[in-house]
């Protein structure tokens, strides 16, 4: 893959990013993603050179605001349906490996 954008100056810690996403990478993937992610960051660096003076930051591409819901209850899922995808359950609860406390 040709590099369309200049590489990011800092080295990205792919191992850390993978940990944040809770995914395991093998050696080949680490190298591939390293290059790809740095290319993305290079693109972002390029964006940073644009003059955005007088442009308000936006949190959303759509110019829509104030989408509200009235405070009225609707039936929830049946308990059995809600629990159907749970790999493990006990006494009406979702069961997970013991959380460190």
């Amino acid at each position: 893959m040709s590099k369309a954008y200049s590489s990011h100056t800092e080295k990205i810690d792919v191992e850390y990013v993978a940990h944040l996403a809770r995914i395991k990478l093998n050696e080949e993937e680490r190298e591939r993603f390293q290059a790809q992610l740095e290319e993305i960051l290079g693109y972002v660096d390029q964006l940073k050179t644009l003059n955005v003076e007088g442009v308000d930051p936006m949190a959303h591409p759509f110019p829509i605001q104030n989408v509200f819901r009235e405070d009225k209850t609707c039936p929830s899922l049946d308990h059995e349906v809600a629990m159907k995808n749970a790999p493990q359950k006990r006494n009406g609860h979702f069961m997970v490996p013991k959380i460190v406390e």
């Binding site: 405070d71 009225k72 929830s76 009406g92």
Partner: peptide, 22 residues
């Protein structure tokens, strides 16, 4: 409130577990 913040499930205390969920 009567309902949760993002959905219309009831905002109540003390119901049987996992019955006010969607």
């Amino acid at each position: 409130t009567n309902t949760k913040v993002w959905c219309s499930c009831a905002n109540v205390y003390g119901h049987p577990p996992n019955t006010d969920i969607c």
